Amino acid sequence: MKLHFHRLILAAGLLLASFGTSSAEPLRTPPSFEKWSVNCGNSGMCYASAFVRDQATWVDIRIIRDWRAGAEALVRLTTNAPLAAEGTIKLSVDGREIDAFPVEQLREIQSTIVAPPGFRPIGGEGFWVPVGPATRALVSAMRAGNVLTVSLPATPDPVTIKVPLQGSRAALRWIDERQLRSGTQSALVNPGEAPAEDAPHAVPVLAPDTLPPAVQKIWDANRFCSDIDPAIFASLDAVAAPLEDKSTLYLLPCGAPSAYNTPYVAILGTPDGKARQLYVSRMAEKGPIASDLIYNARWFPVEKQMHGFFKGSGLGECGIWDRWVWTGSNFVLTEEASRQTCDGTDVSLDTWGTTWPAAASKE
């Protein structure tokens, strides 16, 4: 076992030396557009969202799209305001009412709307806008408008929240680009004539008992991976990512998450039903080491990349961030950044100093 581990470390070092960093890499953190933020889950499902607070009341509005070619955009409205059952939620763009939904009726239809697999709601009470014409009309109006006004029948007093729409169009364009929809019939912004195709994706894994036997055996025997509540497992964006050679990459949570770090393991399943655990390289003081855990793992289906971010605090202003690229048989570390000072300062991950590749020494 000791010799095997040393070989892993040596292999990690060799992989480090054989790859460079591409200029087309995904950013360390997703961009934002005015008040709108964007992101994608490990499956390839993407969303654009805006969060607006007015005194004690807040509203989160997000446009969500799954990776399937025919997937329509969904709109979800979430608020912390207690709503009167007999009241009506009204949505207007630039003073023109787009739609109105009785709260009681909206609550009743929620069970009929199927959320994309792996979707995780935020706190508060959330509502899916009825799918079909209502959602399409709302997205179209938001894309072209300046202000979305959300009128809530809150108790004891009604509340009106204004959501700026500047940046929403750019956010939707970003989703199109991430899902390779730009110029196709399914694009949210500037559609074209090209037929829609499934975006690069991974399949959500919602329960360990759905894993192939060889993969489940490795996961179950690894550290304390199986010591996790099934409901928590389902919420942690575990995926099975198809690869070019018909192998499958499984990115699975390993054990119960801590306050701000969730450990994952990567397992490669092959077409013949076999599986092996994958190790990743990380930089230590004296050189590269091999690790079997990836913290807060994110998978990028288009680029076949995986990011890990070990947070030193809940704010995430310190810790270690890594980027690994799939080579066809293993992962290679192409970039690492760290910040050692946990001082409560809101520091963007994009500004952290790079610790790998090492800066060229000055002559």
Rank of each mutant, 00 (worst) to 15 (best):
T88Y: 02
S111G: 15
D99S: 09
R143N: 06
R107M: 14
D66G: 10
R136S: 09
V59P: 01
A115P: 14
Y47A: 08
P82N: 10
R120I: 11
V93F: 06
T149V: 08
P130E: 02
R76E: 15
S140M: 08
R107G: 14
E125N: 14
E97W: 05
V129G: 02
P121K: 08
A73L: 03
D60P: 02
R120D: 08
T88H: 04
E72C: 06
G132P: 01
V129E: 01
A73W: 00
S151D: 06
K90M: 13
L148V: 04
F51Q: 13
A73C: 04
L74E: 12
T149A: 11
G126Y: 09
T112W: 13
D54I: 09
A85R: 13
D60E: 13
L91K: 05
C46V: 00
R143E: 08
P116M: 04
G145L: 03
K90P: 05
I63A: 02
R62D: 02
V147D: 15
A85F: 11
Y47G: 07
R76N: 14
S140C: 06
R76G: 11
I61E: 02
P133C: 07
S111K: 15
L77P: 10
G124M: 10
T57I: 06
G123H: 15
A69T: 01
V52I: 12
S92V: 03
R53S: 12
F51V: 13
V103L: 04
L74V: 09
V147W: 15
A141G: 03
E125T: 15
R68F: 13
V52N: 01
G126L: 07
G44P: 00
T88K: 03
D99G: 08
F119P: 10
T79H: 07
F127D: 05
T88S: 03
L91V: 06
R53H: 09
D66H: 05
A141M: 02
R53T: 09
T57K: 02
G70D: 13
A134P: 08
R96Y: 05
A48F: 00
V131R: 11
D54W: 10
I61Q: 02
E104D: 12
T78I: 09
T79A: 06
I109L: 15
T57A: 03
G124W: 12
V59E: 01
P82R: 11
V93R: 07
F101V: 03
G87M: 09
V59G: 01
A56V: 14
G118I: 09
E97S: 08
V93Q: 05
V150F: 00
M142C: 05
Q105G: 14
R120E: 10
D66E: 06
T79Y: 08
F101A: 01
I113D: 12
F119D: 14
T135K: 00
T112G: 11
A84M: 10
R53M: 09
P117C: 11
Q55E: 13
R68H: 15
D99T: 10
G124E: 10
R53V: 08
M142D: 01
W128V: 06
